[in-house]
Design a protein around this nucleic acid. Structure first.
Lengths: 272, 272
DNA sequence: GCCCATTTGTGCGTATGTATG
DNA sequence: GCATACATACGCACAAATGGG
């Protein structure tokens, strides 16, 4: 009998072994394949937060991977914030593993307590193929680019406009899904479940200038009101560009929590 | 004869061995000690950018550290952006190693070419001990806190106000240095040379609201003009809080490049 | 184009130390 | 004290990338 101190259940090495088979490819380092297998198990919801992983010895015994390599994969997962480990205790899926991987950049506005975020509701505005050049072409390269524009309602306090640019050949979901599915809360879940890739690096740029007229109208401020323009580029851990996203943010009374690359320490309360 | 393809010179394992002695302490993992020794050599300017490090075999042969452990330290340094490595080529101090470590968050505004930053000139405004509570107390804890306020001139185009909060017991330089030394270009160099710690994590918050009146006056915009308020917390790799910094940014025509945690891929031109 | 030395990158197996309950 | 499990370290072998002859 094994003791599962935190919530949730445990995981058997066998299950991971079969999963590993789907990710192991010739040329791909084993520690990457193992990481991918774990990420997948977490992403698909099969290993909810708090799930206990087998210990290092068990993994090394039941997988065709040496202990040192196992450890390297686990270190990688810790750095990415997917799992947490405690000496003499065990290895567990991190409390917020899914959210951290899936949406390093959705709108997080800190509430009055400083320990939580305001609820966000997204409203689909438009989806279009863009042919013009812009920051998105720099990042995503040539080829077809799809833009999805949404209006984000932040805790019934204010609104902002978000535009995300993706390559439909990399993320076909965006083209295939009916417009109404692009609406609502679970946008990001849908999105990264289909991408299946973890974000490796994020680059962000901020400018402060009058909001475009159409945006000002959407978010309900006077024409010419200055606001923040936040641009973000995201790459997978493999280095392939994933998306370009821009936000037009009118003046408001909240603090927006910007994402950092890789492991995100979370809110200040539980900072490193 | 060894061939040093990039600029600068090479390094001998012996020199590193003596340096390592100053960092190795009982209880401290060897890979951390080696990392610290390299960081120190780079920070003190003794290994300028492009300096070639000995290869893995040499290091393992001349240091009391096994190859696997050497590799772990070098991986760590790569993740932190201190060194760059190329198979079959060698290990070199990264082109911008100092800048990246020392100032993950100084004002970087992209110029017209999109490949470089505008020149920044900083002007000392005031230094004071703050007793009031604020975001800085959350991060830095109780105890004395020193605030240094500066006016940053961005490429003769506009100005912004920067305030940095530190604990004088952690970074005594800030208290000891005469005010005129806190002025000018080399502020950040002075600063992190004395800190000797690499930044491990950065957390950032953005709000958009009217600039405080005193700030508006300093940067030369009308009272009540909305601007961006950027707050940043930085921790060392060890997890101890290093500083809290805030920027008041008026509307302008440039893109500010926000720092990301850990290794920073640089400008878009040389992104991953 | 091809071989070859150099150097990094990956993987294995083992041993030992340290934190936790 | 004791068992468990993570953490560090060692030494070796081989694969893959690079650059020069």
């Amino acid at each position: 009998m094994r003791t599962p101190p935190p919530p949730a259940g445990t995981t058997d090495p066998q299950g991971l072994a079969s999963r590993l088979g789907r990710f192991a490819r010739p040329g791909l380092p084993k520690y990457v394949a193992l990481r991918d297998a774990v990420v997948d198990a977490v992403n698909t919801g099969q290993w909810p937060a708090g799930t206990r992983l087998p210990n290092e010895q068990d993994l090394a015994a039941h997988l065709p991977i040496a202990l040192g390599t196992i450890q390297r994969a686990l270190r990688l997962l810790v750095e990415e914030g997917i799992i947490v480990r405690r000496s003499g205790h065990g290895t567990f899926v991190a409390p917020t593993a899914i959210g951290r991987m899936n949406s390093p950049l959705h709108c997080r506005f800190v509430d009055d307590t400083g320990r939580d975020y305001l609820p966000v509701r997204s409203q689909f505005l438009s989806r279009a193929e863009v042919a013009t050049k812009g920051p998105w072409t720099e990042a995503l390269g040539a080829g077809r680019i799809l833009m999805i524009e949404r209006l984000m309602h932040i805790g019934d306090e204010f609104r902002l406009v978000s535009r995300i640019y993706v390559r439909p050949d990399v993320l076909p979901v965006f083209e295939e899904l009916p417009a109404r599915k692009l609406d609502g809360e679970n946008f990001k879940d849908i999105m990264w479940r289909h991408a299946g890739q973890a974000i490796g690096a994020v680059q962000q740029f901020l400018s402060v200038r009058p909001l475009p007229d159409d945006v000002a109208k959407r978010v309900g401020v006077k024409r010419g009101t200055p606001g923040s323009h936040l641009e973000a580029f995201a790459w997978s851990t493999g280095g392939t560009p994933l998306y370009f996203q821009e936000f037009f943010i009118p003046p408001h009374g909240r603090r927006m929590h910007l994402p950092s690359s890789g492991r995100d320490p979370g809110l200040l309360a539980d900072a490193p």
